[in-house]
Design a protein around this nucleic acid. Structure first.
Lengths: 340, 340
DNA sequence: CTGTTAGCGCTTTCAG
DNA sequence: CTGAAAGCGCTAACAG
């Protein structure tokens, strides 16, 4: 059964053809399941394939194939091990799988150079498309590739320099809804704790916070955390200040977690209302359960892949922008009322 | 700057050679940075590359290159969006990056057929190596590929059917240490809640639990949760039983989370001691903070990649098995003493 | 130091 | 329905 061929050479179609006593083209036809081919020949070929342990070299085929597709795509995210982005990956995989397309995945670590190196690396492996969570400000160098047929979709944040398909969450709307929810529960001093507005998503969420406060005529109370860990101190500082807030809006995953540590550390979790942006594991296990604005990262990935494949399928319209809703998930912490 | 070539054809080395007025081989030498090449010619080539927006086709080179390496590898894990496995992915990426190797990543979803399809897909794209969290019982079909130079490493669980390099956590030792820790704090009735022992890791952890109880002459109290969600009910059942345990060992990530929900839901988190296998986010935010046995998934990935590349670098010794330590992280929940 | 040539493994006309 | 032959984009001898 498992005869290892004498030499260390992988068997090729030529070897299969020789063993089966047919021509190269017949092997190709059988391997690619493209009739017409006589059943008896097909059987002979299949037997030879089995015997030799022949493995199709899809990349060699790509070189010659009419459409030139490699059946692969590149995914560049901030970090493959960040649960948010790995969920995006998962969504992409779900639709790529239906087309037998495999995915190169890599982390940019929010570093433009690294992003660029990764993109070049996967492009050199001739991926059919690219899905990118953009970090770099300039992506014009991809324009030529797109003109030459590369599929390109940006996800989570829009590209700044070029016009391309993109899939985003409703960041601003979600943040606004979170703050309006706190307002509706009687809060007048609502603090914002989040990363500085360098990234698109951070800017949008801050804008949402402001959009909610403005019509109420309330003044803002903003604390920026450069590193997520900074949020811990920021929240403690807010709790200790003269004019302490009665409610907290934390604009991101890791910052919400730090805020929880601070709140619980001080035993104030039942007094200070809190809504976080991004759902977190254990949000419903702790007391009070954490009210959040939920994103749908898997949906983000799915939508990005759909857009990408529609291009590869020949869609040539103008660039599209899909925005996914960010519903409020009520669990308890966001429904605490201010004292008095 | 960004002249898109008139036709939709990607420029090739031939185009570059023609524009630069040199031969194909000279272009190849410049592109691959393999001297000797006259500086003036190099400049001409580089200019032409720039003008045309030439992009190297690394896969075409693979076909002809002496070593035949594609500079890519395949990673098959249970789920790309599971934080544990995506951390493994991250570890692999860290070492692959130093060699400019990119990674195909896909999810087997604990399904042997899917695993097989994925492996075939990446093999057809001629990856240099494969890192697999095995689900299928049989991997003998990979033997021939390994004989033909494929690097192969199993991670998190050993392969059952073939002899290959593998990287594991010390599952049994970690579980044993967890239970011994609870014994040392005076507990005599310690329950085990975990998945049924179908998977290697589950079996090992259960064995560790038993290995700790046996010398103490204590009887076991085991509850299996087929789905993580089942652990919630299982823990409630234990709490309500006549001979309720005073301590809990939960043998996995998601099960620990469900147990926490149950414990906190009943307000028993300060009475029942609890140690979980696998670290979890927010473990230190809740009260009491959760004592765990920590794995090092990033280290698992790094080690797997090191083993893989050592093979590609020509190492030909017998198969190696690396086992990573699983330290106890003391935080509070595991140090509660039994009543009385 | 540079160019010519053969050919990697495959798909695709094009004849038979 | 099957085979022969050309050639995808590239690298590696080998001459010059």
């Amino acid at each position: 059964m498992n005869l290892v061929p004498p030499n260390g050479r992988r068997p090729t179609m030529k070897d299969v053809a020789a063993m089966a006593g047919v021509s190269l083209s017949t092997v190709s036809r059988v391997v690619n399941g493209s009739p017409p081919v006589a059943p008896e020949l097909a059987v002979k070929v299949e037997r030879a394939v089995e015997m030799l342990g022949y493995r199709h070299n899809h990349t060699a085929g790509t070189l010659r194939r009419a459409n030139g597709l490699s059946g692969s795509l590149g995914l560049i995210i901030e970090d493959v091990s960040n649960p948010f982005f790995s969920a995006v990956h998962r969504g992409i995989e779900e639709v790529a799988r239906t087309r037998s397309v495999v995915t190169f995945a890599g982390s940019s670590d929010e570093d433009a150079e690294r992003e660029h190196a990764l993109i070049e690396a996967v492009l050199a492996r001739r991926v059919d498309g690219l899905i990118v969570v953009p970090t770099a400000a300039d992506h014009t160098y991809l324009l030529r590739d797109v003109a030459n047929g590369l599929g390109l979709v940006f996800v989570d944040r829009p590209a700044q320099s070029i016009d391309a398909d993109s899939v985003l969450s409703d960041n601003r709307g979600g943040a606004q809804r979170a703050v309006e929810h706190l307002l509706a529960h009687g809060h007048r001093r609502i603090a914002f704790v989040g990363p500085p507005p360098t990234l698109y998503t951070a800017r949008e969420r801050l804008a949402g916070y402001r959009a909610a406060l403005a019509p109420a005529g309330l003044s803002e109370l903003v604390r920026h955390a450069v590193e997520p860990a900074d949020a811990y101190g920021a929240v403690l500082g807010l709790l200790d200040s003269d004019h302490a807030p009665t409610a907290l809006f934390t604009s991101q995953n890791l910052i919400t977690i730090e805020a929880l540590r601070a709140l619980h550390g001080r035993g104030r979790q039942h007094e200070i209302a809190h809504v976080g942006f991004d759902d977190i594991v254990l949000a419903s296990a702790i007391d009070p359960a954490v009210t959040v604005i939920a994103q749908d990262p898997v949906g983000l990935g799915r939508a990005a892949a759909e857009l990408l494949f529609s291009r590869l399928d020949g869609f040539v319209g103008p660039s599209r922008r899909v925005e996914l809703p960010t519903p409020l998930v009520v669990r308890g912490s966001g429904e605490l009322r201010p004292p008095g």
